[in-house]
């Protein structure tokens, strides 16, 4: 059994807007997968459904054979597109929190990464700059030895240097047999770290393929192909 994530006929409506339309997906272990689509295409909805923050109207999600619940949350590491930490906490308190709740959290790794970033763990989260906050959250999420990482727009709105830092952190920290889903619309930047990509459009999966296969077959980068598929 090499599938890690299975989505069956996943459908989700937001009061008359269809956010996901019969999404069927099967993702293998040990892959970095780009979830690519324009804004409002359903990327975040799909990720939040897998994380357990949204309930689908129809269909089901299985992660390592389990339905989404407290069991899957123990091995799914989720990075939202917003700050989800109580910002009156100090950085080391957020480390305590992750350490207390997630058995796969490696506190030493997290502390080392924060040290390399020159982030003082005695500072309050709310006194950090926007970029630092994002980095702290990324460090927390990537310091877990999870089976599935869900990273929602991890490189949106950061400078190119930080972008490289984030991608390097992801590549160097994910466990070899775990799967990473990165949602983004900045394809050119993530393309080199991806094994596979998924195109999502109006809540439907348009294409799922390997990056190198696309280049071999079409002689095109994912970024170029994306522009062709999503041409207005």
């Amino acid at each position: 059994m090499n599938e890690l994530l299975i989505c069956k006929d996943l459908t989700k409506n937001y009061s008359y807007v269809r956010a996901l339309n019969q999404v069927n997906l099967c993702l293998e272990k040990g892959k970095i997968i780009g979830l690519l689509g324009p804004n409002g295409s359903g990327k975040t909805t799909l990720i939040k459904t897998i994380a357990g923050l949204l309930k689908a109207d129809f269909g089901e999600v299985l992660i390592d054979g389990e339905k989404v619940g407290e069991k899957t949350k123990a091995f799914v590491s989720y990075l939202p597109e917003r700050n989800y930490l109580d910002d009156t906490m100090k950085v080391y308190e957020t480390l305590d929190l992750f350490n207390d709740f997630y058995i796969d959290f490696d506190r030493n790794t997290a502390e080392k990464m924060l040290e390399n970033l020159d982030i003082d763990i005695n500072r309050k989260f709310k006194n950090l700059s926007k970029g630092m906050k994002e980095k702290v959250q990324l460090v927390l999420v990537m310091s877990r030895k999870a089976r599935l990482y869900l990273l929602d727009e991890p490189i949106g709105g950061v400078d190119p240097a930080t972008r490289d830092y984030i991608l390097n952190t992801i590549v160097s920290n994910y466990a070899p047999d775990s799967t990473v889903i990165i949602s983004t619309h900045l394809i050119a930047d993530v393309e080199k770290v991806l094994d596979e990509f998924i195109f999502i459009k109006n809540g439907e999966i348009v294409m799922q393929s390997s990056v190198d296969n696309l280049r071999e077959e079409k002689g095109m980068s994912v970024d170029e192909y994306f522009r062709e598929v999503f041409k207005c």
Binding site: G30, D164, V171, S172, K192, D195, D212
Partner: peptide, 17 residues
């Protein structure tokens, strides 16, 4: 493979290939 992948900031599977 892993070190090389980080150095190039590419996916370890791609480096493996």
């Amino acid at each position: 493979v892993r070190d090389f992948a980080v150095q190039a900031s590419v996916n370890p599977n791609t480096m493996q290939r």
